[in-house]
Design a protein around this nucleic acid. Structure first.
Lengths: 341, 341
DNA sequence: TAAGCCTTGATAGACGCCTATCAGGAATTG
DNA sequence: CAATTCCTGATAGGCGTCTATCAAGGCTTA
């Protein structure tokens, strides 16, 4: 049951190790019929190159850069931690990961960061803003031979090789379905709070949410969207205003961050139980509120999965190995009080 | 930025490579103070042994065996496929995985299988039945130095090193919460169908479900549990009987497999929309029924994650590397129509 | 037929670590 | 102080692959 080595293949094909290697790595010209002999032997013996030995010999090093938003958004902080964890874990596998923080809301700054991270990287993962300047910056990297993966927030029109994140329109639809079903057949108003209406993920969530609500739960009226810039104090303010303006408010869907602001506003008015509240991203705050019953469901994307998926994709691109698309699909988690991890 | 090698450590510690190696691998007696010098150098240089090189040098091979239930349970078939996929993927990493099928409902057969798979394996993963004979068989393996991981269904009282599966009591609670909330404030009867009341996972799900329903949704009455042995034709029969006996049935929770039987029974009576139906495990059948609206939510455990987690754990045990417990936690997925993967 | 090119073989050395052995010096024992 | 035992150093060879180089034929071309 010993391993099949390149030597066995050479022997079986009646050729030399050097020639087999030439075929395997396309190093030099080999006559087609010779190459066929090699391939036949490989198939017969079911030879699979030892990746450990190969990487050792090649002394391959991967250098990746993760560009994340700065600021105190809980989810993004968690994402950064996952990147760091992955980085230290992968030292022993010859992968180096750098982390850069930048202002996501500022397209120019983000684009500048992307432009500046020169050719020292084999791949870049970025939480992107969908803006022409950013798109151009991504395309620039790709043209220079750097694989780019968008993380959490996509730029579909760019030449990025992959998007590691959830389908936000589906996430919005999911929120709507839960909202509608949790409210039974009740009639009333539903409020929608977004971080920014220029962030692609927020737009898509809103779109999915409104679509399903209008179609399947016409008894629920959606209030005009409020913008919060993902700042929890602002969130609290607008929520409080909304609560006092609409006494028949029975649902809140928070598309972005700043969940604690809503929690605070609800607690201040004592209307936690009357209002069905659906939030995004599992953090310490949202978790506590879910257990308390203030939040009714959390739609989550697993930051760890996203980071690991991004790394896998970047590694696969770096050494041109095919990747199993299905494995890289990021799921939309739903958490209620009872299935919290 | 070159890699730190064992040689660098030796140099920094003012010792020889041989001695550093002795410390690292506990090969021979080394004076404590010498060992400390080595450890200090390792810390200073942040040395991390190259796992690739180490495994190459050791020529380490892992041999694992996965013991799964035979039969035509969709979920288990999927699990088997995941094992095979993982096996072929890991050939290039010197991991060999064998797959054995056995009758899970038969404790003696399962125990016999476990007893028979001798000492050729470094680790065993098993979908276990919680029964004294099985427990003894597991303990026997562990005593012979074979790491055992339980998969999907646990045997907590055994000496298994790990359980790769979901918390089934939480899964049942989750189902109850969804059931209660989806039913709004409606009053009526809820039916519960289990595969077998001797399977630990089914018992726990039932327990969690009944607990939450009794506590939080007292307006819902639970009918006596029906047993189906996970056979969908039997499921259809008992469901049909239940439906005709209880015209005020408004909810069904299927704890085990055989979801298509319930779908068929509901469709035959045309009561799909009146009954809120919560099922386990995402398969082709349940997926279709969820999209159709016959199933209202699916509680799922990700077979791929479970298999990969089991392998990671077995590998970690085999070479005594510590494992990050948090990473091995298997989540309880909730799927509604909109967040299907 | 000589000159050149194309294809293949043979082989050495590297990657970083493991294993084993031998020798010499240090520390311990009587 | 001699005789052990203990600890450390030095070094060779191996794991499977990659890279590079040189030599030896076979073949084409003029």
């Amino acid at each position: 049951m010993a391993r099949v080595t390149i030597e066995d293949v050479a022997l079986a094909a009646g050729l030399s190790v050097a020639t087999v290697d030439r075929v395997l790595n396309g190093r030099a010209a080999v006559r087609p019929q010779t190459a066929q002999k090699v391939e036949k032997a490989i198939r017969q013996l079911n030879y699979q190159p030892d990746r450990l030995a190969a990487r050792l010999a090649k002394g391959q090093e991967y250098r990746f850069c993760f560009v994340l938003p700065e600021g105190n958004n809980d989810f993004m902080i968690g994402l950064g931690e996952e990147v760091r964890a992955m980085a230290s874990h992968l030292v022993s596998e010859r992968v180096q990961i750098d982390l850069r923080l930048t202002d996501v809301f500022d397209a120019a700054a983000l684009a500048a960061t992307l432009d500046s991270i020169g050719d020292i990287y084999d791949g870049v993962a970025v939480v992107a803003l969908d803006h022409p300047r950013v798109r151009e910056a991504i395309n620039g990297l790709v043209e220079r031979g750097v694989s780019v993966v968008t993380l959490v927030s996509d730029v579909p029109s760019s030449k990025r090789v992959h998007y590691a994140g959830i389908d936000n329109s589906s996430a919005g639809r999911t929120a709507a379905t839960l909202m509608g079903r949790f409210l039974g057949g009740k009639t009333g108003k539903v409020g929608l709070i977004a971080g920014s209406l220029s962030l692609r993920d927020h737009i898509e969530r809103r779109f999915g949410f409104e679509q399903v609500l209008a179609q399947e739960f016409p008894q629920l009226a959606i209030l005009p969207v409020l913008e919060s810039r993902d700042d929890w104090q602002r969130v609290e303010k607008v929520t409080a205003e909304m609560l006092s303006a609409h006494t028949d408010l029975i649902g809140i869907y928070n598309v972005g961050a700043g969940a604690r602001g809503i929690v605070a506003a609800l607690e201040n008015t004592g209307r936690q139980k009357q209002v069905t509240y659906i939030a995004h991203e599992l953090t310490d705050h949202t978790r506590r509120a879910l257990v308390d019953g203030t939040i009714d469901a959390i739609i989550n994307q697993n930051a760890g999965h996203e980071v690991r998926s991004a790394v896998r994709v970047l590694m696969a691109k770096a050494d041109r190995t095919p990747l199993i698309e299905a494995m890289e699909h990021i799921r939309i988690d739903i958490f209620v009080r009872d299935n919290l991890p």
